[in-house]
């Protein structure tokens, strides 16, 4: 099978998993809803009345007020994080670069926490997202400026930079918590754990629109990311305006990470695990990688969110904890493998 058809097959498969996850997520919960009721309610929303449509207003409001916004939020946050990871790996020339590991998520979190303390109610949801973007941007620029040498980033440098940036951002968050009043403090602590519960449509709209723009832009730049894997100099020889590409990509990573973190807290390792597995299946060409990462990231978070709601009955696990629980060992395995292959921390 050619690379292109493999990529297409994988994207379709992931889309299938995603749809399955969405349906499963919509029908599962304290209030059991049948798949036909979900379909009926969706059809009614687009103006087609069927016999399937639920008559019970509680079911209707459970779907539209609680479950659908949460599902869409999981979908777009997953897509944003996975694509941010893929773009970051492309510009760092290193498959271990990831917004969570490198500290971009923490930077965004600091920005969002600051916004909450300063009174997010005044700024609204967009204010939190804007602050998260700015925090993420500063962190990305910092990591980028410090950790690259000769167009590439060594694993050690990248991770050490990540530790430093994470430490600074966490200190900042601690300070913000310290000066916050009780209400904001509770809000920040809860939000920091990472949760998709209580997602509002107004927030979903912000995250979704930025994610769609970000994914499309990354896709448009995909060929240039391919050339960038040859090294900055060779990419330039092939006509890539490397400086411009770098700048656009940094903003892109900060936007996607910032908007993903703004309302759901830090959900780490999605940007590491998803692009990596996809690269193993369809190869590193970025057009397929970015699209498949978007769909795969969405599917992963929808399913992960479903698990957080169902693993422990009556309670809800923080999703950030769950992704780190799975992503941490995966990261460890990647490091181990890379170390064995190159005989050191190259």
């Amino acid at each position: 099978m050619s690379v292109r058809s493999r990529a297409l097959a994988l994207i379709l498969l992931l889309a299938g998993v995603l749809v399955g996850g969405i349906v499963l997520s919509a029908i599962t919960g304290q209030l059991a809803i049948t798949p036909t009721e979900v379909a009926g309610s969706l059809l009614r929303a687009i103006g087609i009345d069927t016999a399937w449509a639920p008559t019970d207003p509680i079911i209707e409001s459970t779907l539209w007020v609680v479950r659908f916004p949460r599902i869409v939020m999981a979908l777009v946050v997953g897509a944003a994080l996975a694509v941010a990871g893929a773009v970051m790996q492309a510009i760092f020339g290193n498959p271990l670069a990831e917004p969570g590991v490198v500290g971009v998520s923490s930077g965004a979190a600091l920005g969002a926490a600051t916004a909450i303390v300063l009174g997010a109610s005044v700024l609204g949801g967009a204010g939190v997202a804007l602050f998260a973007f700015l925090g993420g941007l500063v962190a990305t620029l910092l990591v980028y400026a410090v950790s690259r040498a000769g167009g590439r980033t060594e694993v050690v440098t990248l991770l050490l930079t990540g530790i430093a940036v994470n430490a600074i951002a966490q200190a900042g968050i601690a300070f913000v918590l310290f000066v916050a009043d009780t209400a904001s403090r509770e809000q920040i602590v809860f939000w920091q754990l990472g949760s998709l519960g209580g997602s509002l449509w107004s927030q979903v709209v912000i995250v979704a629109s930025v994610t769609v723009i970000g994914v499309l832009l990354s896709f448009a730049l995909a060929r240039r990311y391919d050339l960038l894997s040859l090294g900055e100099r060779n990419a330039r020889h092939l006509g890539v305006n490397v400086e411009q590409l770098r700048l656009v990509s940094i903003v892109l990573v900060a936007l996607l990470t910032g908007v993903a973190v703004a309302f759901t807290g830090i959900i780490a390792f999605v940007g590491l695990v998803v692009p990596h597995i996809i690269r193993m299946i369809i190869g590193p060409a970025h057009r397929g990688l970015i699209l498949a990462s978007a769909v795969g990231g969405g599917a992963l978070l929808v399913l992960a969110d479903l698990m957080t709601r169902t693993l422990v009955s009556g309670a809800e696990l923080p999703i950030g904890m769950l992704t780190s629980l799975v992503g941490g060992p995966f990261f460890f395995w990647l490091l181990y493998r890379q170390r064995r292959r190159s005989g050191g921390w190259a």
Partner: peptide, 11 residues
């Protein structure tokens, strides 16, 4: 150029 390292395993 002399340096021809490729970051990802392209074919």
């Amino acid at each position: 150029s002399q340096a021809n390292v490729v970051s990802f395993p392209f074919r």
